[in-house]
């Protein structure tokens, strides 16, 4: 911070210098003005170029992800239940795919007994059906903004029906995965 203090009181400071010193003083004053401006700019830039969060929105809890703001309280409770089951079923999708691959290998393995390959084929069919039912459910499910009242029912009634459907699909998926795991282990 050399020279900054005297410059802030330049009237007093100017009396202390002769002509040459005044020239140097003015030059340094210019440099210091540039430096002070630059320092301010650099502080602003440093702060703004960090990992700031301009324009960010606060994190939503996972249950609210994808929830429509149009939902009434009762609808929201049902919607969250449907989404919770959907999320847990989607988390199983990787296992379902891995098990499908494993059952395919066992069912086509000619060195294994017919009983074993038949059980694997059955498990494979169950996995394929569960997979199809899950994707079909997601394809037909409508959020409130895209839902059309075609049957004269409320959106709440629609969600109740969807909750039954996704519960059934989720159970089917879990059951198919567990059966396939048992086949793979024995």
């Amino acid at each position: 911070m050399y020279r900054i203090l005297p410059l802030l009181h330049h009237n007093r400071a100017s009396n202390l210098y002769d002509t040459n010193q005044k020239y140097c003083y003015i030059t340094m004053r210019r440099i210091n003005v540039i430096y002070l401006t630059a320092a301010c700019l650099s502080i602003i830039l440093t702060l703004s170029c960090g990992n700031g969060s301009t324009g960010s929105q606060p994190n939503q809890p996972s249950s609210q992800k994808g929830a429509s703001p149009l939902l009434k309280e009762e609808e929201k409770i049902l919607f969250d239940k449907v989404m919770a089951l959907h999320d847990s079923a989607m988390a199983q999708m990787g296992h379902l795919t891995s098990m499908t691959s494993a059952m395919r290998k066992i069912s086509t393995n000619t060195t294994l007994s017919k009983d074993k390959t038949d059980v694997a084929k059955h498990a494979l069919e169950s996995l394929s059906l569960a997979d199809k039912h899950m994707w079909d459910w997601m394809y037909q499910f409508k959020k409130k903004d895209k839902w059309k009242n075609e049957k004269g029912e409320s959106y709440q009634a629609y969600l109740s029906e969807q909750l039954k459907m996704i519960t059934k699909v989720s159970n089917e998926m879990n059951s198919a995965i567990e059966s396939a795991k048992r086949v793979a282990e024995h």
Partner: peptide
């Protein structure tokens, strides 16, 4: 000193 100040600024920038 002046160059040092400018250098510091450039480094920050």
């Amino acid at each position: 000193v002046g160059l040092l100040h400018i250098g510091c600024f450039a480094f920050l920038l």
